[in-house]
């Protein structure tokens, strides 16, 4: 079910620019299927981003975040090769963690 995330972390000076793309339906609980039944809510509730094991961003989301959510953030004091790890949890208890290394500025 849980597809891998696409994470990109590039260094700009001493700040890492992190871009995350998650694959998730993010159902609002307001849409109906072809039979007129409401499609139940299914959305990511929390995303935690860590830098070398230390939490830098802890998010709480509602169903109003778009399908296949994008999250961008900046991490100060990062160096090339640092580990950026992202974990999301949805309202059905599904989880997914992916990790990347910070790439040097190109």
């Amino acid at each position: 079910m849980a597809e891998p995330m696409k994470i990109r972390a590039t260094l700009q000076g001493d700040v890492a620019d992190v871009r995350i793309l998650m694959l998730h339906p993010m159902e609002t609980g307001q849409r109906k299927d072809s039979k007129g039944q409401i499609i139940p809510m299914h959305f990511i509730q929390s995303v935690v981003v860590t830098h070398n094991g230390k939490t830098v961003l802890d998010t709480q989301w509602s169903q109003a975040v778009s399908r296949n959510p994008f999250l961008g953030l900046r991490v100060k004091g990062a160096k090339a090769g640092d580990r950026i790890s992202v974990t999301w949890t949805d309202n059905k208890g599904d989880k997914r963690t992916d990790e990347v290394a910070v790439a040097a500025a190109s």
């Binding site: 830098v56 961003l57 953030l73 100060k76």
Partner: peptide, 29 residues
């Protein structure tokens, strides 16, 4: 917060440690 959404609060981001005061995402309105 998107004021006129059925449920206005869209997302909350807690910044800690080396996180900068910057977040970017996409929401439904």
């Amino acid at each position: 917060v998107a004021e006129k959404n059925p449920f206005p609060l869209a997302a909350t981001f807690d910044v800690a440690g080396g996180g900068e005061g910057y977040v970017s995402t996409r929401i439904k309105m």
